[in-house]
Computed example of a mutant assay.
Amino acid sequence: MESVNKIHFLNSPYPNGHQLTAFIWRGRIDEDESVWFDFHLKSENYYAEEEEEENNDDFDESENEDISSWDSKIVWDNYLACTLSSIYWGEGGGIRIDNSGEKIDLDKVIQNDLYTNDLPSENDFDEDDLAFGIYLLGHDSCANHRIKFSKKENHSYDIEWTGKIALTYSGDDEFSHEFTASIKNAEFDGFHYPKTWSVEKATEVFQSKLAYFEDYEFVDLNPKSNKREYKLNKINK
């Protein structure tokens, strides 16, 4: 069983997957007071773990003009690494978690798997409707995400994240590829809120949105700066 954070792209030229160089799981409340989970990951270079073998039986891709982008190591290596994120290209994606009308109990939210119903239909494809952006073999598209949490010790979680991919950068709108990411001992990075809000306004809104608000505290994002910006963190007891 692997103990490192990795992402695998099923049936790609790299069956062993790719280690992650970054992972963020955080909350966000937007101007209209909707509450979201955001996720962000970045992989190492695709070829980073490739072992050099003395007897390399790989065929020469240049001799096969019909090889697809997905099957070509040359194409993968050309695009270097993957970024999969709801925040890297600006806020507006993510998974909404305040749909029930009740106050959000963070522990209860992550007892259940999170899903997105953003798989485009054949005649209805709009990038703005997708919860996450992806840079894979160019700026491609991903949808139909499922995120599962397993609680560990010390307020951390193992996360399994799956979804479907379309190589839209190369003109393919069919979500025929899949990924699975495994993250070990992830910690929640708190709730971020609009920079235009005062701490007083954020307090008022969060009190109306979060169960057990007394279990949270505001944390300065830039303690060494004169610019005061905060996020709301859950206090680990």
Rank of each mutant, 00 (worst) to 15 (best):
E2A: 10
S3E: 07
S3Q: 12
S3W: 00
V4M: 11
K6Q: 12
K6H: 06
I7A: 07
H8W: 09
L10K: 15
Y14Q: 05
Q19C: 06
L20F: 04
T21W: 04
I24V: 08
G27V: 02
E31L: 15
E31V: 11
E33S: 15
S34M: 11
V35M: 14
K42Q: 13
E44W: 10
N45D: 11
E49R: 14
E50A: 10
E54A: 09
F59D: 13
F59P: 11
E63D: 15
D66G: 02
S69P: 14
W70R: 09
S72L: 04
K73M: 11
V75N: 03
C82H: 07
S85D: 05
G93Y: 00
G94F: 02
R96I: 05
G101T: 08
G101M: 10
K103C: 05
K103G: 08
N112K: 13
D113C: 11
D118M: 01
E122A: 13
N123D: 13
E127G: 00
D129P: 08
L130P: 14
A131F: 04
A131G: 06
F132M: 08
G133M: 02
G138L: 02
G138R: 07
H139Y: 15
A143G: 07
N144F: 03
R146F: 00
I147S: 08
I147V: 13
F149C: 05
S150T: 08
S150M: 03
K151I: 02
E153C: 06
E153T: 15
H155F: 14
H155W: 13
D158C: 07
E160G: 02
W161F: 09
G163Q: 03
L167E: 14
G171S: 04
E174H: 09
F179C: 08
A181E: 04
G190N: 05
G190Q: 03
K195Q: 10
S198L: 06
A202Q: 06
Q207F: 01
S208E: 12
Y212M: 10
Y212I: 01
Y212P: 01
E214T: 02
D215G: 08
E217V: 03
L221Y: 00
L221I: 00
P223K: 01
N226H: 12
R228Q: 14
R228W: 05
L232M: 08
I235Q: 11
K237I: 09
